[in-house]
Nucleic acid binder design. Structure first.
Lengths: 342, 342
DNA sequence: GCGGGCGGTGGGAGCGCTCCCACACCGCCA
DNA sequence: TGGCGGTGTGGGAGCGCTCCCACCGCCCGC
């Protein structure tokens, strides 16, 4: 049964109106939750909608009204895949959960090349989405500002700098570094090193700041030889660990600014015959799935990634409805997950 | 400058037509690549488009025409997160790459609850996407058939059974199991066990078949005590390995049908004092990021995940344009990645 | 008792496209 | 010379909504 003759088969708002014995306008008002509708009409329309199985046509809505009921989640992947991948999935999970309730569509846009970037910029300026969520933005990324200029609501995941002007949801990266080092020094480590992310990224600088605070708080001497810059990759972590071992053979604790780099460091430590955690305690950031698989399982500072996604979505929705004129500035706390590597 | 007074600011097809000195129809024809246009007109329109920075309005297009220029990628997450997460990201990556060239939008839909499932089914029947890509479908998932009934093109990632009737892109799971066992027996292992996925999933049964073929080909006796069913989770892998150790203390090789389960097995082996690979050789499937991090690094059978995503997208696009009446049935080869666990 | 509100309503006028019909205009044939 | 088909073209008629104006009652105040 059903789905037989008709071309498109879908009932329209007009048909709903006819069945409910009201005008088109009234149906539209009911659907959009306008307060100026009598209970009687509301009920009649509701029944007609149910009977007909009516679902509003999004294209028509977008064309007639202003909104599209869709937001874009943008993930730039220009360079090497900097962040551990599960990170993105968790963000997506959070965003998706929040959007589902608002009945908004999630458009996923991976930007790999400048061509794709250009295409996305066209997208933006064509106002084809009600807002954008930007993940993994670099310090010099112009996309957030472009969105602002075009009047498209935007929310970032992470800041580009301390003075970020676009709305953002970030995690407490200074606190992450700080708690990692506190944990290390709390276990009696005295020569605590750090492997940083790329220092043109604010997130990396923040974690380094946290490290420095922790070192100072423990009354240990600041020693720049204990700081090795890397790039969030495993190979980078490996290289940095080698440097560290060479410069400071007496290192007994390492705070790697990401789990992936910690994994790199771990393999170098193994090759060098240093036991973890006996000789060198090791701690990462992200609490990624891989952390648990490492040997020994890696102590790590967890970020509430899914929650960040959720908060970003919520902030964007608010910005779209214009509920809150103040751009969202949220910094979520991190949490130490202690395992056997420390 | 720019973006000053005008309400929407975007030029319309009509304005392009006026500027090019042609009719609306002609501009539309040029944009959609119709052959029935003179070179002169084509050129004039092209210039006008460039000068005005015209970008077609998607909503209007969708409303007037039949297509929406969007496809949905559906990821059911009802139960525990069965598959390792990076899997999905790689699929997304492949799909996205292929779609970008076709200038199609990627709608991501996570289905967690029956409510979200229902919403998506409404979506489908409202014809709001030109097609669907379905990932991680279970044997009894009705979604693919629903899509078929509604006449929405669909492509699956993996089959639900040997007789799958909906278009699909799968990897050679039998071959994966077979090559894993061949590798194990090739290294002289004689008591080779397997930890399977949930046997109501076709993928799990295929890998088990491959295992059995491998055992037989090596002239080893089939022994059901060497087969332990699990569920693709780490805890499941752990439980299965314990069983195996109890039933067959002389086991010297284990083929786990996923890296995650291999990780579980590995930790049980450690606790039991069995060395890997000396006492027991261990091999997984997926070649996930975690495999490399394990100690020792895990030998694994890699699936061409990103390529699968790409092929799925390509197949779907073809099905949408109606180019190929035959539903896509692709089975991609897997590849053994040898590391230190075997 | 009459005028002015206000809650509630109907329906016209688009939104920016695609589809398709109608109509030039060309060169060809009979 | 007239007719005929084939190109190339213009533009009307929607697609299914939202927005908004106009309108109908009713109740209130004076």
């Amino acid at each position: 049964m059903a789905v037989s003759g008709r071309q498109t088969g879908r009932p329209t708002l007009e048909e709903v109106a006819a069945r409910a014995g009201v005008g088109r306008g009234t149906v539209s008002r009911v659907i959009n939750g306008s307060p100026r509708v009598s209970d009687r009409a509301k009920e009649a329309v509701g029944r007609a909608i149910a009977e007909l199985g009516y679902v509003p046509n999004r294209a028509a809505r977008a064309l007639a009204g202003a909104r599209t009921d869709a937001i874009a989640l943008v993930i730039p992947e220009t360079e090497s895949r900097l962040f551990a991948e599960p990170y993105f999935l968790d963000i997506i999970r959070g965003v998706s959960a929040e959007l589902a309730d608002a009945d908004m569509q999630l458009l996923l846009t991976l930007i790999r090349s400048s061509k794709e970037r250009q295409r996305f910029e066209q997208y933006l300026s064509a106002q084809r989405v009600d807002g954008v969520l930007l993940v993994s933005v670099h310090g010099d990324d112009p996309l957030p500002d472009l969105a602002r200029e075009l009047g498209v609501p935007a929310v970032l995941n992470g800041r580009r700098s301390a003075g970020e002007r676009v709305a953002y949801v970030d995690s407490d990266n200074v606190g992450a570094g700080r708690s990692a080092v506190d944990h290390l020094t709390g276990r009696g480590r005295r020569r605590v090193a750090t492997i940083t992310g790329p220092l043109d990224m604010y997130v990396a600088r923040c974690r380094l700041d946290g490290y420095r605070q922790g070192v100072e708080a423990a009354g240990l001497p600041a020693d720049d030889r204990l700081v090795a810059a890397a790039d969030f990759t495993e190979e980078g972590g490996r290289r940095a660990m080698r440097e560290l071992l060479e410069r400071c053979p007496d290192v007994d604790g390492v705070f790697a600014a990401s789990d992936v780099m910690a994994a790199g460091a771990r393999s170098v430590l193994r090759e060098a015959g240093r036991r973890v955690p006996d000789d060198v305690a090791l701690i990462g950031v992200d609490d990624s799935a891989g952390a648990r698989l490492m040997d020994p399982p890696l102590t790590s500072v967890r970020q509430p990634i899914e929650e960040m996604g959720r908060r970003m979505a919520r902030a964007l929705l608010q910005e779209i409805t214009g509920a809150d004129p103040e751009p969202c500035r949220v910094v979520l706390p991190t949490e130490l997950v202690v395992r056997d590597s420390t």
